[in-house]
């Protein structure tokens, strides 16, 4: 990933944080990448991780200092003498499991700062010093999360008397257009075929006439050949149009219809 791309995505992902914080973070990373040796740029960007991860870290930092008092991050690790007693708490050094992720989860704060970010749920589910905080956060999320599907369902029920006939009408119109299109296609195809066959047949007649009245015979032959050629052309045109226009159109329609259902499915 190029530098511009990285910064653009980061900027996009941080749209919802306060403007000043966003600018500061972007400036930091812009300078960071400018200070990196040009030939290592790609490597550094790879090491920074995905813009999503970097954005999550920035966001977490903001969240942490919004709730600093409750959080006790810095005070806990900071000024009081007590902190060193607390630092040797079993939680921090006891769980010396093989898996460092497992270990850092025990220690609470560290995972956020030093490890890759897990999913939001994983982080929220993480026990530790900010457990209470986490629970509150989770509850808040649940409240918002429950309300939305409920509202959508309510809306669907209220709108059903209007929506169902409308959907039926739309389906009927679409079906009608498709059938009409198919009909027109078939009609043109048959027409083209008929023109071709009639042309060939007339050529035979013209050839018969050639001996009685050469001029008339030739003219009929010529016109018949032109007709046959037009028939072939018409058939080719119809087939070409069918594959170039009608098939992609139907495909697009199917995709457009499927999309809301897919999203709805993943949400549920």
């Amino acid at each position: 990933m190029r530098r511009e791309e990285f910064l653009r995505e980061l900027s996009y992902l941080l749209q919802d944080i306060p403007e000043a914080d966003r600018e500061e973070a972007l400036k930091y990373y812009e300078e960071y990448l400018e200070d990196a040796p040009a030939e290592e740029e790609e490597e550094i960007i790879r090491k920074l991780g995905s813009p999503e991860k970097v954005a999550a870290e920035i966001r977490e930092g903001l969240r942490a200092d919004a709730g600093q008092e409750d959080f006790g991050e810095y005070t806990d690790a900071g000024y009081t003498d007590r902190r060193f007693e607390e630092h040797r708490m079993p939680g921090r050094y006891a769980g010396r499991a093989e898996d460092s992720r497992e270990r850092s989860r025990d220690t609470g704060w560290e995972e956020k700062a030093y490890r890759e970010y897990g999913t939001a749920q994983e982080r929220d589910a993480k026990p530790g010093r900010d457990e209470q905080n986490g629970q509150e956060r989770e509850q808040g999320k649940k409240g918002g999360g429950c309300l939305k599907p409920l509202l959508i369902i309510l809306l669907c029920i209220c709108a059903a008397p209007l929506l169902i006939p409308l959907a039926l009408v739309a389906a009927a119109v679409v079906l009608g257009v498709i059938v009409a299109g198919l009909g027109v296609t078939v009609a043109f195809l048959v027409g083209g075929g008929a023109l071709f066959l009639a042309g060939i047949w007339t050529v035979g007649k013209g050839l018969g006439l050639l001996f009685l009245s050469p001029a008339t015979g030739l003219m009929i032959c010529g016109m018949a050949l032109v007709g046959a050629a037009l028939g072939i052309l018409l058939c080719c045109l119809v087939v070409w149009l069918f594959f170039k226009v009608a098939v992609p159109l139907v495909n697009a329609l199917v995709r457009a219809l499927r999309r809301p259902f897919e999203r709805g499915g993943s949400r549920a």
Binding site: A25, Y28, K47, G49, V54, E57, D65, E73, Y74, A113
Partner: peptide, 17 residues
């Protein structure tokens, strides 16, 4: 051993403090 992106929040916090 730490990720390249870890320090921004730390520097920011130290600055705030």
């Amino acid at each position: 051993d730490l990720s390249e992106s870890t320090l921004y929040p730390v520097l920011r916090r130290l600055q705030k403090d």
